[in-house]
Amino acid sequence: MLFGNLPAALALVGEERVSVSLNARLEKDLPFAPATSLPVVVLDTDTGQGLAFAGVCAEGPVKRCTRADANGQALLGGLFRGTYRVYPDPRFLPQGYREEKAAQVQVEPGTPLAGVQVRVAPPKREIVVTYTADRLSLVATADPPSPLAGAEVEVKALVQGEAEAVWLELPTGRIPLQPQGENYYAARIRLTLPPGFHSLRVLAQGREEAEAPLFLQVLQGALFDPRVLEGPKVRLTLRFRARQVALSKGGESFPLRSENGYTWTGEVPLGPGQHTLLVLADGETLGQVALSIPAESATH
């Protein structure tokens, strides 16, 4: 599906089913609405600390649920305008824990939302609270949580229990996450997702299968920096690792060099003045860069 220049602050309302035929083209109007994300902390009233891996939901015009990280912090994404009740998800609380305090939030997309707290109370002291060791569960995060379309993002998962494989599920297939030690798994990948809100899944397979949601707010932006250069010696930084990078103008190509695939340097032997060049990375056109070459430093 192609969404063109869809603003990143929009999300698809509901789900649409379509029937696709081979070699056929289907056009369908899809309902989108402004959406935003809400930071939440699930607080353990006994310790005063965030409750690791606790579940939390927001219910209003739509219902969104997710799992907190190791510090009890979570991000509920894809929320449309309206009033929401934010509460602990009893499906993902330690045995005996119960809701102590929920929160009421008014969502207005475009207006920044302050983080909210929901509270859970532990069971009576004589009850031992723990997660079963052989119960497989995980929590997933992305760094950054709001990447640029076409840029790299690091997907991380903290797994509880014995996992034989951990992966990110994408429409194009599975992306395996590699063990990093101490039950952490990670993969640095370039996501080819259009701007907008995306709800993905990270899964773990052991004696059972577990999954965790991964919400990404993909933004539109330049995949290189800076956008204005002063030459003839130039330096560009890409937001993803590339094998070959060149600047191009009028049929001429000026290759750059790099040691890490991200930072690229070189020299553009053009005359003094203002120039507009294309930035090419592995054959992909990333956009235009403005190059200014002073008269005293121009090479001929």
Rank of each mutant, 00 (worst) to 15 (best):
K233G: 01
K233Y: 03
K233T: 14
V234P: 02
V234F: 02
R235L: 12
R235W: 01
R235M: 07
R235K: 13
L236P: 05
T237A: 13
T237I: 03
L238P: 11
R239M: 12
F240T: 09
F240P: 07
F240Y: 14
A242V: 12
A242G: 07
R243I: 01
R243Q: 15
R243P: 00
V245K: 01
V245P: 09
V245W: 10
A246E: 15
A246W: 11
A246G: 01
A246D: 10
A246M: 14
A246S: 15
L247K: 00
S248E: 15
S248L: 09
S248Q: 15
K249Y: 06
K249Q: 15
K249G: 03
G250E: 15
G251W: 09
E252A: 14
E252G: 00
E252N: 13
S253L: 10
S253F: 13
P255M: 08
P255R: 02
L256K: 01
L256W: 05
L256P: 09
L256D: 10
L256C: 09
S258H: 05
S258N: 07
E259S: 15
E259F: 10
E259K: 11
N260R: 04
N260K: 03
Y262C: 00
W264P: 06
W264N: 02
T265P: 00
G266T: 07
G266W: 06
G266F: 11
P269Q: 06
P269V: 09
P269R: 02
L270E: 07
L270P: 07
L270Y: 01
G271I: 07
G271N: 07
P272Q: 03
P272H: 06
P272N: 03
Q274K: 14
H275S: 04
H275A: 05
H275R: 04
L277V: 03
V279M: 08
V279L: 12
V279Y: 05
V279I: 12
L280I: 15
L280C: 00
A281H: 02
D282W: 06
D282G: 11
G283F: 09
E284N: 08
E284C: 02
T285E: 14
L286A: 10
L286E: 08
L286Q: 04
G287A: 12
G287M: 11
V289I: 11
V289C: 10
V289H: 09
